[in-house]
Every structure is written in structure tokens, then in C-alpha cells.
Nucleic acid binder design. Structure first.
Length: 498
RNA sequence: GGCCCGUUCGUCUAGGGGUCCAGGACGCGUGGUUCUCAGCCACGAGAUCAGGGGUUCGAAUCCCCUACGGGCUACCA
């Protein structure tokens, strides 16, 4: 795609603060952000808080927080402001009222005084009798002007509905799907303004997109069926359509039934904050999410944020749904963790180590250096940062936690005792305590006993780390330090080895 | 039920009429490296491109039908 010659690209992410943002929501934010950054435009955050019943202040914070943690900076929005604010819908109610009035004046909308109960009853009856459209039966659309003003004067509760054309069809272009055709007779007269004076999504989003100069509306497939309503509203107002982009949905699998469906509590919807807390790196999450429904073409998979911006294009977006695959995210996160340099690795793991009580909340330079040595030994084994404490805990404290199976296999054997004794003796005498020094000591112990190095290495590993899996033994011993190593070997010798 | 959208290895995907008896990645299996695990490297299994009809000299690629999957069907977004 080529950059629009005249208008600059302006995209938005417009979540409603009714729940914490999950990866499905964030992917749309990502695509919107990427498009804006790719073409040097603006990315806007707008809060669609028009549902007073479901409003949740915590999710509002989570939305802003998640974007910040992921580094998806917005040019305009709540807190930062901007030229076409406010960016919170509840603060711009008059705009929606104005547009609704204009629509009423031109005959494209009308007040509806029907009760919720009647509307619901009608809907059910029509659906059962297969009368199209299934929803509202347009009773109030035929009200005389006199009747309307009488009811209005009485202060009768009402909503404002859009007058959908009775026949014909609505067609529009979707950037990833091509032409979409929708028969108008399937569309009932949807609500524009609720009885509490708040707009519905149908009205609010398009008014704001217009007023905020949004050029590309990126939202998932679930919005496709209501798009013709939005197109019709634009036509009624004589407004130019933004470009519509409807990527396929992200689906999750229900562990019970194995069936896939739109991400939801039951179907694997995990909040982004949770992934971040679990130690998934923002850059890995973004890279992975970008690939769920988009591809740069070819074999390219690992991409930095900048590369993503550089390569992103609407053409690569997929119209078919995709299943969120945690296994692949785990792999990718591991790749990114392995790419971290030592100070970064320490920085990112710090929170988890502190929470686990392995280090103080403000480690000094020496402690950080030690953490760096420890973590880089475990780095290649980490799938998430949260695994750091469990993997590295044996580096801390007097004694490690001894794993029963490991002890049984490597320490409670006839050869373990002599091996530990020999190792302890040579290690205590080792002239230098570094990788080469301890390696020499351990190998000489084996030589003296006339056994293979493994016969000493394995018992020493369990004696000093408590487990039979872990980083290379010599590197481990070097970091552990002579005192700790000898103490542990002697303890294991006395405690376990026959 | 109705309408809309979708359908390439288990999963994410490349591919857009001949170079595809379909390529890459995750996962899986085997082997190598090695003190274990991990990592890394190599190899392998895995898709009659949902099925059926067309169009064409030629179709994963274009058209139609069917099946299946998903979405929507609120004074929620």
C-alpha cells in the first residue's frame, strides 16, 4: 500500500473500559499503532465509556497501563490530550446529540417510545416467525409529527433510532476482504441514542472518528455485521467513509471441549497484564501478536519493534481467524530472553527475584554482578522471566532444596561417597577458584579414583544444587563459591551418601 | 433459525494461473555436540491446498455449489 498523498494516516484504538484488555484487543491496538507509525501518522487512544452499567474504572487504568508497558505510545488521548479532544466519550455527549438531531431533521432517524419489553417481545416473535429483519418492527417510524411532539412534551422516555432503508443493499470495501454486500432488509432500525441520553457505539464511534479525522478503522471481524449500519449512517450524513480494516478474529481453545471460539474467559482470554506479570517480554508479545493475523510475506518471523513498523502493511493482514498458540509464544519469548544482555537480564528478572525473596529490593552493584552471573547461567533455560527464581534459587542460601529423585539416583549410591570426598578434597585445595580451576579439581578427583568424570560430576551437581538438571557444573561451582560448595558437599556426604 | 465472513501440515503462516508431487516457523520424533537439562546443529514425520463441479493447454491460486468452522443477531461494545 502507498501512503495517502494528501491526508496523513490517523488511526485509533477505542476500547471500552468494561474489562481488562486481552491479547485480542491489544492486537487491534498494535495494528493501528503500526500503521500510524509506518506512515508517519498519528495513533490515538479513545475511551468508549458509553455503557454506564458496565463501566469499570480499573479497566481504564489497565488500558493505559498496558499500552505504556508494551510501548505502544499514543499521540493523542486521555491524559496527553490533543487538538480534537476530549478523548473520553462521556465528556463529549453534546456531539452525539447534535448529530442525532441532524439525522432526525433529515428524516434518517426518529424517536422511538417503545418499551424495552415490547421491543424484546417483538424481536422474539419475529425471529420465531422468521420475519425479516429480526429486531425492532419500526412501529414508531410511522408516528405523526404531532404525536411525536406530544409525547416529547410529556417527557416520555425514548430512544433515537436510525431509519434503515427498507430495501436495496449496502456494499462497502474492506481493505482485507474486498467488497462486502449486505441486504438492507436484514437490518432493523438500531438505536443511536439510548434513553439515558448516551449514544450507542454505532453513533458514537463514527461521530468521533469523523471529528478526530480517523482515516483507518481497524477492528476485528466481529464488527463486520454492523458495518453496513455505519456505512448507511455515513451516507445519510453525506460523510466520507474511513477505510475499514477487519482482520480475522483471534480464537482460543476451550480446554474442556477442544473447540475454538472468539477469545473469552472460557476460550483462553488472558489479559495482557497477566502475560507481562508472568514474565513475557513486551517485544516478544508484540512480535507474536503481530504474526497472529498478519505476515510480512516470506519466511520472516522474528522482528524487532522497528522492523515491524518498517514491514507492516495492510496487504499482509489475514481475513481468516487464528488460534492463539501459547507454545509458540513460549518459544518466541525464550528467543527474546536469550537475546538479553546481562544487565538487561538482571533488570528484567529483578522483580521476580525480589518477590521470591532471593534478593533485596535495591541490590547494590556487587549483588547485581552476582545476579548477573547467576542469571546468565540459567538464561538459555528460561521460557519466561517468572521462571528465574525456581531455576536459580539454589544459588542462594546455605543449602539448596534437595530433590528426592535426584538424591536417590546420584547420591544414594555406593560410588557417591568416595566421589564427594575426593571432590571436596581437591576443590578445597584448588589454587584458583574459577571455571578452569574447579574443572581441573573435579577431573583430577575422577582420575584419582579411576572413574569417568561423570561419576564425580553427577554426585557433585546434586550435592551442590540439589538437582540433576542445571547449567554446566564447573560454571555453577565457580559462581557458587568455594565455601558454599564445600559446605554443601560435606552436608550431602553426611546426610545422603552411604 | 437467519444473515455475514472464512477454509493451505495439530498450530501460526508463505504462496495470488505454469518455477508447488506446496516453502518456513512452533510443536513432535531421531541423531550430533556434551557432565545433566537446556541451547545449538542436522535430519525426519506431518497438507491428495475442506469436498465436488466448472473456466483454462495448465488451478492451492479464478467462478459456482456443498460441507464444515467462526462471527453477528441488545437502550454491550
Amino acid at each position: 500500500m502507498t501512503a495517502p498523498a494528501t491526508a496523513t494516516v490517523r488511526t485509533r484504538w477505542a476500547p471500552s473500559p468494561t474489562g481488562l484488555p486481552h491479547v485480542g484487543n491489544i492486537r487491534n491496538a498494535l495494528y493501528s499503532w503500526l500503521l500510524a507509525r509506518r506512515f508517519g501518522g498519528q495513533f490515538i487512544l479513545r475511551l468508549e465509556d458509553t455503557d454506564r452499567e458496565r463501566y469499570d474504572a480499573a479497566s481504564e487504568h489497565a488500558i493505559v497501563h498496558s499500552l505504556r508497558e508494551l510501548g505502544l505510545d499514543y499521540d493523542e488521548g486521555p491524559r496527553v490530550g490533543g487538538p480534537v479532544g476530549p478523548y473520553i466519550q462521556s465528556e463529549r455527549l453534546d456531539h452525539y446529540r447534535t448529530v442525532a438531531d441532524a439525522l432526525i431533521a433529515s428524516g434518517s432517524a426518529y424517536p422511538c417510545f417503545c418499551s424495552r419489553e415490547r421491543v424484546q417481545g417483538v424481536r422474539e416473535a419475529r425471529q420465531k416467525a422468521n420475519i425479516h429483519p429480526f429486531g425492532y418492527d419500526r412501529q414508531c417510524r410511522g408516528l405523526s409529527a404531532a404525536e411525536v411532539s406530544r409525547l416529547l412534551a410529556e417527557g416520555a422516555s425514548h430512544v433515537v433510532r436510525f431509519a434503515v432503508p427498507l430495501d436495496g443493499e449496502t456494499r462497502f470495501h474492506d481493505e482485507v476482504r474486498g467488497t462486502i454486500v449486505y441486504p438492507n432488509r436484514e437490518l432493523d432500525d438500531h438505536v443511536l441514542l439510548k434513553s439515558d441520553g448516551f449514544p450507542t457505539y454505532h453513533l458514537a464511534h463514527m461521530v468521533d472518528d469523523r471529528l478526530m479525522g480517523i482515516t483507518h478503522v481497524i477492528r476485528s471481524e466481529e464488527w463486520l455485521p454492523s458495518s453496513p449500519r455505519h456505512v448507511l449512517q455515513h451516507e445519510a450524513l453525506g460523510w466520507e467513509l474511513p477505510k475499514y480494516v477487519h482482520p480475522g478474529l483471534i480464537q482460543g481453545r476451550d480446554p474442556q471441549s477442544g473447540k475454538v471460539a472468539k477469545l473469552s474467559k472460557r476460550h483462553g482470554a488472558v489479559f495482557v497484564g497477566e502475560y507481562l506479570d508472568q514474565g513475557y517480554l513486551p517485544e516478544a508479545l508484540l512480535n507474536f501478536l503481530a504474526l497472529l493475523g498478519w505476515s510480512p510475506g516470506g519466511d520472516r518471523e522474528l522482528m524487532t519493534r522497528d522492523e515491524l513498523v518498517e514491514l507492516f502493511a495492510l496487504e499482509g493482514i489475514n481475513s481468516s481467524p487464528s488460534v492463539f498458540d501459547l507454545e509458540k509464544l513460549n518459544w518466541m519469548n525464550g528467543v527474546y530472553i536469550r537475546g538479553l544482555d546481562r544487565p538487561e537480564l538482571v533488570e528484567r528478572c529483578l522483580k521476580h527475584l525480589i518477590d521470591a525473596g532471593l534478593t533485596g529490593c535495591d541490590p547494590d552493584a556487587d549483588e547485581r554482578a552476582f545476579l548477573g552471573e547467576v542469571l546468565s547461567l540459567e538464561q538459555e533455560r528460561m521460557k519466561t522471566l517468572a521462571e528465574a527464581p525456581a531455576l536459580a534459587s539454589f544459588f542462594f542460601g546455605d543449602l539448596p532444596e534437595y530433590d528426592e529423585a535426584s538424591v536417590k539416583k546420584r547420591l544414594k549410591t555406593a560410588s557417591a561417597g568416595p566421589a564427594l570426598d575426593a571432590a571436596a578434597e581437591r576443590l578445597s585445595a584448588a589454587p584458583t577458584w574459577d571455571v578452569a580451576g574447579v574443572e581441573l579439581a573435579v577431573r583430577e578427583s575422577a582420575g584419582a579414583l579411576g572413574v569417568k568424570p561423570g561419576e564425580v560430576i553427577h554426585p557433585v551437581r546434586v550435592a551442590t544444587t540439589g538437582k540433576m538438571v542445571g547449567p554446566g557444573l564447573f560454571e555453577t561451582l565457580a559462581v557458587l563459591g568455594r565455601d558454599r560448595v564445600l559446605r554443601r558437599i560435606r552436608h550431602a556426604r553426611a546426610e545422603f551418601a552411604g
